[in-house]
């Protein structure tokens, strides 16, 4: 699916292409459904970034996640002023990097705010510099970050399950199993067709869904404490 235009889609969305290049790319998009689909996926990620609520973290999971994905800068993470974080960030999404970006986005939205796109910035929010989360040239890192985040949240659920009604715990676990089953099926599908844009984004979306449910469970435990 990768062609000469794939890595320029983010620049296109950012409005950073010269008019002539932009026109050429738009012409290409009319003929290349793969690029068109990838562009739609990137737009969806951006849209999601803009609509993510700044939920308070149940616990400070970021240090563990950052360490797992190698995103911890020397001296640890620190908040920076919005102004300094608003410099345009050049994307370099391609598949399967898109999947990693999508997962990284949800990893970062729990307690840390990620400015994936300048347009996603919201007033009054101090982002944490965590560029590695979306530096998706390192998908294995993002995968480790995902695994670490899931492990953290599963530990919260295990340790805090006594604070929830047993019916609620059963419902959450049943739905987690449903999602896990979907993830396994999607992973097998990706193995059979690794260049399939849909399968990669579907896998990422399903993994994201698991994180969201675990986070929701952790929030319930926190509220019940």
């Amino acid at each position: 699916m990768s062609d000469q235009w794939t890595d320029r889609l983010s620049e296109y969305l950012d409005g950073e292409l010269a008019p002539s290049v932009r026109a050429e790319l738009e012409q290409h998009l009319l003929q290349c459904a793969e690029c068109e689909a990838t562009l739609a996926d990137i737009r969806r990620v951006v849209g999601r970034a803009g609509s993510l609520a700044d939920r308070a973290p149940v616990g400070d999971l970021w240090p563990g996640i950052a360490q797992a994905i190698g995103a911890t800068p020397p001296g640890g993470t620190k908040a920076v002023p919005i102004a300094s974080a608003r410099r345009p960030r050049r994307w370099s999404f391609s598949l399967p990097q898109l999947a990693a970006a999508s997962i990284g986005l949800i990893l970062a939205s729990g307690g840390t705010v990620l400015l994936l796109h300048p347009g996603a910035a919201r007033p009054g929010v101090a982002p944490v510099q965590s560029p590695s989360v979306i530096n998706v040239g390192v998908e294995p890192r993002a995968a480790r970050g995902y695994d670490a985040a899931v492990a953290d949240l599963e530990r919260v659920l295990t340790e805090g399950r006594g604070r929830l009604d047993t019916t609620t715990v059963k419902v959450i676990e049943r739905n987690l199993a449903t999602i896990d089953s979907a993830i396994v099926e999607a992973e097998r599908a990706v193995e059979s067709d690794s260049a399939n844009v849909y399968l990669n984004s579907h896998l990422a979306a399903t993994m994201r869904r698991k994180l969201e449910l675990l986070r929701q469970a952790a929030a319930l435990i926190s509220a019940a404490s």
Binding site: A33, E34, E36, A37, D193, A195, N196, V197, Y198, L199
Partner: peptide
């Protein structure tokens, strides 16, 4: 259908 892709995708 203007585009069909491997893996049962079309547009």
């Amino acid at each position: 259908v203007t585009q069909t892709h491997k893996g049962r995708r079309l547009s």
